[in-house]
């Protein structure tokens, strides 16, 4: 069964339609990455799923409930880690966790939450003394207080140093191995690449691509060959590949790298030309993402 099911979701603010017919499913036990630029309808969509906003039209089911009803039974089973949410500044880490655990029928143990998020040393620290990264880990711990089946993570590692990010990713992977479903929104493509089983990209209120990060928008098929050729040589004919000449070299994009590479290197050997900086690579998730969102922005 799908943990989240969204069909033709729409949301308007006055005359402005922020979400324009969005469909997707999040399967139980997967990490679902939800990507999109600011203002694309991402936050609106997530907040509708979380029950903070009402939709204008469409169908939404979260763990079998309609989040618009604000049912307690649903809130007992989800954990929400928002951006920029405060917490009582004058309580200690352990006290805040104890308070929030008390809101749920089957909470996790405070010690467990502290261990999971690496806050054991900060247990008796007053919240206002915590650093930004520690505060963010506390956010995560609070989101997990009720031992939720589904966790919403909104930009969970913003402001983390690289080590802290890796640690946070480890926590998220652990959650996944416990069978939790995770709905992750992030601006970091490497984060989505590392964590998400599937991603969806929203741009201008619509889903423009969805799939596993490795195969998103034909990413697995497109290969980029880059090199620098001497300026006085005309390149061979590369049928079926897109060639872009940049001032510092050539980018060839192709579905058939073996053949293209053969033609290019054959041509170079024949003429005794060296191809400086020759690389063969697949576009990163970030490349694909930037292309998709730019297309959507231009199409508006």
């Amino acid at each position: 069964m799908a943990a989240i099911r969204v069909r033709d979701l729409r949301k308007s603010y006055g005359a402005m339609e922020a979400v324009r017919g969005v469909d997707f499913d999040v399967e139980e036990g997967e990490v679902f990455g939800f990507l999109g630029p600011n203002g694309a309808g991402k936050t609106t969509t997530v907040e509708i799923l979380e029950g903070y906003r009402q939709r204008s039209a469409g169908e939404v089911t979260v763990l079998g409930h309609d989040p618009a009803k604000g049912e307690r039974a649903l809130r007992e089973r989800i954990g929400i880690v928002l951006q920029e949410t405060g917490v009582e500044r004058f309580l200690t880490v352990a006290e805040v966790l104890e308070l929030y655990c008390g809101y749920y029928p089957r909470p996790r143990a405070v010690d467990e939450l502290l261990t999971l998020t690496g806050l054991e040393d900060k247990r008796n620290e007053v919240v206002k003394e915590l650093s930004g990264g520690q505060r963010r880990r506390l956010d995560l711990a609070l989101g997990l207080a009720g031992d939720p089946d589904l966790v919403f993570l909104d930009e969970p590692t913003t402001g983390f140093d690289p080590t802290a990010r890796r640690e946070a990713w480890e926590v998220i992977r652990n959650l996944r191995s416990l069978g939790k479903t995770i709905f992750l929104t992030t601006h970091y493509m490497d984060e989505a690449q590392h964590l998400a089983d599937r991603v969806a990209v929203i741009a201008a209120g619509r889903i423009v691509a969805a799939g596993p990060p490795d195969r998103l928008a034909g990413r697995n098929r497109a290969t980029e060959i880059r090199f620098t050729a001497p300026p006085d040589h005309r390149l061979p004919d590369l049928a079926g590949a897109s060639v872009t000449a940049l001032d510092r070299g050539v980018v060839v994009r192709t579905d058939d790298p073996t053949a293209v590479l053969h033609v290019v290197t054959g041509w170079a050997l024949e003429r005794g030309v060296t191809l400086d900086g020759l690389t063969v690579s697949r576009p990163t998730l970030e490349d694909v993402y930037l292309e998709l969102t730019a297309e959507a922005a231009n199409g508006q």
């Binding site: 903070y52 809130r75 929400i80 928002l82 917490v87 749920y104």
Partner: peptide
Amino acid sequence: KRVRGTPV
């Protein structure tokens, strides 16, 4: 807002 997201 955070409290609103819990079952309290």
